[in-house]
């Protein structure tokens, strides 16, 4: 095996796509499909998805039916939001190898990311239970499917199980952050994102910036509404407006009314404006 391929493979294992690409630049023999697979994987890791697609297709011209190349092609397509095309690639591969676990797992993730929880469940049913419950990545898959089905408690259980198995799993950390954000727990969400940023140097910038946005001081009033819940806050407001004057005749209803509506309008507009401002300033 070309030593440059070995070095590229090791760099990819460490999650360093840029380093893998620099090793691949020194490769001179392009008859080995592995060159194109590693290049596709490295390009995906560097967010260069169209080039990754091209590399995977060139590899498949050399080795039609190569499962690993088909998987990289599907990954590059789904990262370009070409989910239907990615599905066709995976289905072609799966109909030749219906019990291939990496293919089944990737197809289940694709369906889940496309919002088809029913389809993802059906694919997961084809994966043996010991595999499904024995790996952090498949626990993360189950956690994500449970999350989009609205089964937050189950999602938390799967993700915590995955975290216990592999405390350094970036994807599980990010899913926990997502679960926290759905539950209006911005601090836990930001903590998990920052932990993910520390574990994944390539994504550190992105996760760190998102965590900074979540914790921005200007969002404190909006976080207050999130923590209490808009419905509970409104019910409290109604109770104060209708019962307040009977219990406390001198209650200042005007300022309460103004404060409530100011808070509501603030929570509608400021998060949206702040996100755009931070994007404009290159901070997000």
């Amino acid at each position: 095996m070309d030593p440059h391929l070995l070095l590229a493979s090791q760099a990819l294992d460490r999650g360093n796509g840029a380093r893998a690409l620099s090793h691949l630049d020194s490769v001179t023999d392009f008859s080995d499909p592995e060159v194109f697979r590693l290049r596709a994987a490295a390009l995906i890791s560097s967010d260069r998805f169209a080039e990754a697609e091209d590399s995977a297709r060139r590899g498949l011209e050399l080795a039609p039916g190569n499962r690993l190349l088909q998987m990289e092609l599907a990954r590059s397509l789904s990262n370009q939001d070409k989910n239907a095309e990615a599905e066709r690639v995976l289905i072609t591969a799966l109909n030749q190898a219906p019990e291939n676990l990496p293919l089944l797992t990737q197809y289940a993730w694709l369906l889940a990311h496309s919002g088809d929880a029913v389809g993802a469940h059906a694919v997961m049913d084809r994966i043996p239970g010991d595999v499904l419950n024995g790996h952090p990545s498949t626990l993360a898959l189950q956690g994500y499917v449970a999350l989009i089905e609205g089964r937050q408690r189950s999602a938390r259980q799967f993700l915590n199980q995955g975290m216990a198995m592999d405390p350094e799993s970036v994807s599980t950390r990010m899913l926990l952050a997502l679960e926290n954000s759905l539950d209006d727990k911005p601090r836990s969400s930001a903590d998990n994102m920052l932990a993910a940023a520390m574990l994944d140097p390539e994504m550190a910038g992105e996760y760190g910036r998102e965590a900074r946005y979540i914790q921005h001081p200007l969002l404190a009033p909006a976080r207050l509404i999130g923590r209490i819940g808009p419905a509970k806050l409104w019910l409290a407001f109604i109770v104060v407006i209708y019962l307040g004057p009977q219990v406390w005749p001198g209650i200042p209803l005007g300022p309460i009314l103004v404060a409530y509506f100011a808070l509501v309008i603030y929570s509608w507009t400021v998060p949206w404006l702040l996100r755009r401002w931070m994007i404009f300033r290159g901070q997000l």
Binding site: E87, I91, N95, L110, S114, D116, G119, A122
Partner: peptide
């Protein structure tokens, strides 16, 4: 859910 047997496109 998809029927058992060969995989068919859903997306």
């Amino acid at each position: 859910p998809p029927p058992p047997g060969p995989f068919a496109p859903r997306l």
